[in-house]
Design a protein around this nucleic acid. Structure first.
Lengths: 133, 133
DNA sequence: CCTACGGCTTCCCATCATGGGAAGGTCAAG
DNA sequence: CTTGACCTTCCCATGATGGGAAGCCGTAGG
């Protein structure tokens, strides 16, 4: 099949498929006589694998590592699990950061009247007047 | 003061101060005879304002809007509050996304033995075999 | 007086993942 | 034979940040 169909079936855009190939994340695709890339079911499965890894927040580099582990029949599941746990820890760290931001903002916004007057604890906080607690 | 001191006092790197000026987020800095940029306390306060906005997750564009509202004495706090609430909603959406990723991964990782054997539900999931629930 | 050093200047490049779009080749249907 | 939907490669943009080169400025120490 051509790249458009592979894209549709995998959920990875044609643009990205070419890009992944350029990065070396995918092997160079087979070509037809007309120089069009040619894909089969296994290629689509690989693309779906990458797509799913991206959906779970893994970077392309990490997706590449997972892919090579997937292909390695003699792999130890310990390596996969370690990678997953590191990624979970990273997600948790970023979640905590963002929660802290959101909570701070919620506190400031709730103290802000939000009317036509200029007084605003949000701007006051940004300007350096830290809240009184 | 020179850019190095302004950077240290504001917590914004010299590199970024120049960049913000290039973006038009900051007015062009005053220059000394030797062409060095020259900053005063008010400049540092503006930089701190931007820094704080960034710390709360606002984009540079949003920081620019907040900055102009801060400078506008006749502003209505409603505009500030609306911007903050949109940002909170955006943070909450991203947090929910990441929590969903982390929770899925936690489920898969807990089902993975993590030993020297190749069986691994994490890879099985990525490969398209969706979990049984 | 020369040199070394630290600070500054501009400019270009890299990151990460993705998309937009131009210029041009290929192929099937009308 | 044209049209239109594909495909190709190549360049550029995003957003925020940093790295580093080449070169200027100014002071302190020999």
């Amino acid at each position: 099949m051509r790249i458009g169909e592979a894209a549709e079936r995998s959920g990875v855009s044609a643009k990205m498929i070419r890009h992944y190939e350029g990065l070396g994340l995918l092997p160079r695709a087979a070509r037809r006589d007309n120089n069009y890339r040619d894909y089969d079911e296994r290629d689509v499965a690989v693309l779906q694998f990458i797509r799913r890894a991206r959906d779970l927040g893994f970077s392309l580099d990490e997706a590449g590592v997972l892919l090579s582990l997937w292909r390695d029949r003699g792999r130890s599941s310990a390596k996969v699990k370690r990678l997953a746990e590191q990624h979970i820890a990273d997600l948790d760290r970023r979640i905590a950061e963002m929660r802290s931001m959101a909570d701070t903002l919620r506190g400031l916004a709730s103290a802000c009247r939000g009317d036509q007057r200029p007084e605003c604890p949000i701007l006051a906080d940004l300007a350096g007047a830290r809240a009184k607690h």
